[in-house]
């Protein structure tokens, strides 16, 4: 059965309203972009949040000229198309408030000729288990070690990103940094042990090739037609 929503999301949190107002910098009127994908799932930039934000802004004397929740806000050509669709409303606004992740904010800023205001902080790439429960398991480091670590990522799930076993700091098996998390190295050890694969842990893993994680990343490949 297909999921009703994406299982992997860029997790966002709305900035405090006072901080958003500071970003408005005296603009008298705003157009609002949400996002129908991740920000809707996180309840930071869906239809309901856009409406609530419009109300709060109106109470502060800021006119909202219009708003939209595109299917996704990180598709730059689609954002340009939406820009044409809402030409009049956007034209009347002094700036565009984006309730989406940083990628969405920049897609709008790079595609439309208006000052852009970010209404959210982007937190992490999250796996979801159930509604509003998100867990960071992959940090897109560019140098995947999951084959050596029983499919559990120490680069992401160990705050220190250790590659050769745990630090000495675990408290009753829980991470010293956040004691609500089990030490991922103990989990790796237990999983490998149960699979009879502990011998692999004795190898010393070499330092990471950090250049693979250097930003900004991009991929520009020619599109091949599907056969």
């Amino acid at each position: 059965m297909a999921l009703r929503y994406n299982a992997l999301v860029i997790i966002t949190k709305q900035k405090p309203f006072a901080e958003i107002l500071k970003g408005v910098r005296g603009a008298q009127s705003l157009f609002i972009f949400g996002c129908g994908d991740c920000a809707t799932l996180c309840r930071t930039g869906g239809e309901a949040e856009i409406a609530a934000m419009a109300e709060k802004l109106a109470a502060e004397g800021v006119t909202v000229t219009g708003g939209t929740v595109p299917h996704t806000t990180c598709h730059e050509l689609d954002v340009q198309r939406i820009g044409r669709q809402f030409k009049e409303e956007i034209g009347k606004s002094g700036a565009i408030l984006v309730l989406a992740c940083g990628a969405g904010v920049q897609a709008v800023g790079d595609s439309l000729d208006k000052p852009v205001i970010s209404g959210c902080d982007s937190l992490f790439i999250g796996n979801s288990k159930r509604q509003m429960n998100f867990y960071e398991k992959c940090s897109a480091c560019g140098d995947c070690v999951l084959n050596e670590t029983a499919g559990l990522c120490p680069e992401t799930r160990c705050p220190k990103g250790l590659l050769n076993g745990p630090c000495g700091g675990a408290v009753r098996g829980m991470c010293e940094v956040d004691q609500t998390n089990k030490c991922v190295w103990i989990e790796i050890y237990e999983r490998l042990k149960s699979q009879g694969r502990l011998d692999g842990l004795m190898e010393i893993t070499a330092p990471k090739e950090r250049r693979k994680a250097n930003m900004p990343h991009k991929i520009e490949q020619p599109v091949r037609s599907a056969k």
Partner: peptide, 17 residues
Amino acid sequence: YEPFELELLKTKKKIAA
């Protein structure tokens, strides 16, 4: 450290290093 077997494994790796 608990599990100590893991600390011992790490110690052996440190000796190898």
